[in-house]
Simulated assay, not measured.
Amino acid sequence: MASWPHQRALWAHRYHKYTHIAGKYWTFALKYLRIQWLKRQAGNRPFIAIILSEQMGDIIACEPVAREVRRRHPDGYIIWVVRQAYVDLVRHHPDLDGYLVEKCPSERVHLLRAGVFDQVYNLHISHRKCKYCPEDPVNPTADQIGLTFDNYYHRGDLLYMFSQAAGLPALTADPKMYIPETIRRQVAALNLPDRSIVIHCQSSHVARDWPAAHWNQLVRWLLDTYDCPVVEVGLQPVVTVRDPRFRNLCGQLSLLQTAEVIRNARLFIGIDSGPAHMANAVGTEGIILLGQLFDFVEYMPYSGRYKRGEGITILNNYGHPCAELPYDWVQEAAWQRLGQPKLV
């Protein structure tokens, strides 16, 4: 007989599963009605969906898709289908008429089957399922070109790959972020020192991370060597250095506030993550730490200026995970980017 903790975990899983599935059908019905209302508001304009609901870096990298879709459909009513956590990444885009919040990939399957969109640009690779729902999301265009989770980084950067998955040409444009004036004023009110070094140390996947001891050593060296303050952004802090010129903003900023902090930085140093894509999109010089990710040894996530090598140093000890990237490589790259120190 199963133990009580096992039984409790089983029933908790069943509760979350069935409440999620019931909620999915409810939100699908509401969104179906909302889309029909939006279509009436749009009149004769074609109703067009761009679908890329997650992850943060993917959405930022694929921003040029909105501009390309607007170019192709100048009179279209264009919305971006996105998860709630990433709404701000598309909310202010001048080429979008709106956005639709996705509950889960299965809900998206039902919306597509309902035929509510006149044109769909689906940037997702097939078979990224909801953990509770039985539906298996499929993107026939991605399947037709043989794009899978096992080979996607062998095919090019995120924009280059996902634009083709949507049936568009392989796009190569520089990504942009649209930061409203209200956000800029909010960040200005933080009174951060000018020209800070901004670091981001922890991603959503441990395979992308660099050791905490190295980050602490790097921050201590930066503060001892340069007169630049250092600011850490992200969800969870990694750096434990105590110094009046070090500022921990982890967990305190919205996505767009984080992008604005990075935009104002003298230099961004980080692992492959959403904030690294922000740095590329807002024009900040960067040092990006890469390493082997699954079977991907030599890969390039970024399009635009980072891919062209403009204002960027990308470090990759090929064949080794990011955790094994030598500390000296990062320190040397920072030295090269920051130049002759003012403090010795």
Results as ranks from 00 to 15, higher is better:
residue 254 S to V: 12
residue 303 S to N: 12
residue 295 D to P: 12
residue 286 G to W: 02
residue 267 L to P: 09
residue 261 V to C: 03
residue 226 Y to R: 15
residue 302 Y to D: 01
residue 265 A to I: 01
residue 295 D to W: 08
residue 287 I to S: 00
residue 297 V to T: 15
residue 223 L to N: 07
residue 302 Y to R: 01
residue 262 I to M: 09
residue 279 A to Q: 07
residue 235 L to D: 13
residue 240 T to E: 11
residue 250 C to E: 10
residue 223 L to M: 09
residue 266 R to L: 14
residue 298 E to R: 15
residue 253 L to Q: 11
residue 256 L to V: 10
residue 266 R to Y: 11
residue 281 A to G: 06
residue 307 K to R: 14
residue 287 I to P: 00
residue 301 P to R: 04
residue 236 Q to H: 14
residue 271 I to M: 05
residue 242 R to F: 02
residue 307 K to I: 02
residue 277 H to Q: 04
residue 274 G to D: 06
residue 223 L to G: 06
residue 263 R to M: 01
residue 274 G to M: 03
residue 260 E to K: 01
residue 227 D to Y: 14
residue 240 T to Y: 05
residue 250 C to D: 10
residue 224 D to F: 06
residue 275 P to I: 09
residue 281 A to Q: 04
residue 234 G to W: 02
residue 298 E to P: 02
residue 300 M to G: 11
residue 278 M to D: 00
residue 289 L to V: 05
residue 234 G to P: 01
residue 272 D to N: 12
residue 227 D to N: 14
residue 265 A to F: 00
residue 305 R to T: 01
residue 255 L to Y: 06
residue 273 S to G: 06
residue 232 E to N: 11
residue 264 N to S: 14
residue 266 R to A: 12
residue 284 T to K: 12
residue 294 F to I: 04
residue 290 L to S: 01
residue 303 S to R: 09
residue 232 E to S: 08
residue 284 T to A: 13
residue 282 V to S: 06
residue 256 L to M: 12
residue 282 V to F: 03
residue 274 G to E: 04
residue 263 R to N: 04
residue 286 G to R: 08
residue 254 S to C: 11
residue 305 R to I: 00
residue 226 Y to S: 12
residue 268 F to K: 03
residue 272 D to L: 05
residue 240 T to F: 03
residue 250 C to V: 13
residue 293 L to M: 07
residue 294 F to H: 11
residue 255 L to E: 05
residue 246 F to K: 01
residue 305 R to Y: 03
residue 261 V to L: 05
residue 228 C to R: 10
residue 231 V to K: 03
residue 255 L to N: 03
residue 262 I to H: 08
residue 227 D to H: 15
residue 298 E to T: 15
residue 291 G to I: 15
residue 275 P to N: 13
residue 294 F to W: 13
residue 249 L to C: 11
residue 295 D to E: 10
residue 241 V to M: 10
residue 234 G to L: 02
residue 256 L to Q: 09
residue 268 F to T: 01
residue 273 S to I: 06
residue 248 N to H: 12
residue 234 G to T: 05
residue 279 A to N: 05
residue 308 R to G: 08
residue 268 F to A: 04
residue 288 I to L: 12
residue 290 L to T: 04
residue 307 K to T: 04
residue 239 V to L: 06
residue 252 Q to I: 10
residue 302 Y to I: 02
residue 244 P to N: 11
residue 227 D to G: 14
residue 265 A to W: 00
residue 246 F to P: 07
residue 254 S to K: 11
residue 274 G to L: 05
